[in-house]
């Protein structure tokens, strides 16, 4: 049995619960872990819970990549467009990143979606069209 499995189960059990209910869940969780003889895993569970939280936060995050800070304002409009078009989930928070290698344009990245309007991709495609 892994600490991560207990952490995942606990996260799921705690979701949507108020403080009083959460206390009950935690007490029951301790009983279960004790009954299975896995109390040795308890010190590792908080770290796993932290990892799950970090991962969940990353899933709620959308990264806006631009080639420089100057053009960012321009591309934020594109971000807002996709946000209102519901292509990005409602609970998404935006994080801005500068990556010079994309040359120009922008990229919006979420956990499972990439909206790519970078010049780098267009130039690579152009190169492939010419050379193939």
């Amino acid at each position: 049995m892994k600490a991560s499995w207990y952490a995942e189960a606990l996260t799921e059990a705690l979701s949507g619960k108020n403080e009083k209910e959460a206390e009950k869940v935690l007490a029951r969780f301790y009983e279960v872990i004790k009954a299975h003889g896995h109390t040795g895993l308890l010190p590792f569970i908080p770290a796993e819970l932290e990892k799950i939280e970090v991962r969940a936060q990353a899933h709620r995050e959308a990264i806006l990549v631009t080639a420089d800070t100057k053009s960012r304002t321009k591309w934020v409009h594109a971000y807002d467009h996709y946000f209102t078009e519901a292509l990005l989930p409602l609970d998404t928070t935006r994080r801005d990143i500068v990556d010079e290698t994309i040359i120009g344009g922008y990229q919006i990245r979420t956990k499972d979606l990439l909206i790519d309007s970078s010049y780098k991709r267009s130039l690579i495609e152009l190169y492939q069209n010419i050379t193939n």
Binding site: S122, L123, I130
Partner: peptide
């Protein structure tokens, strides 16, 4: 011929937005 081909391609170049499904290793 090659130069002409490159010139035409560059003239027609218009960065298009591509929406793709992605994942992370």
């Amino acid at each position: 011929i090659l130069i002409e081909k490159i010139r035409k391609e560059i003239e027609a170049l218009e960065p298009k937005t591509k929406v793709e499904r992605i994942g992370t290793v």
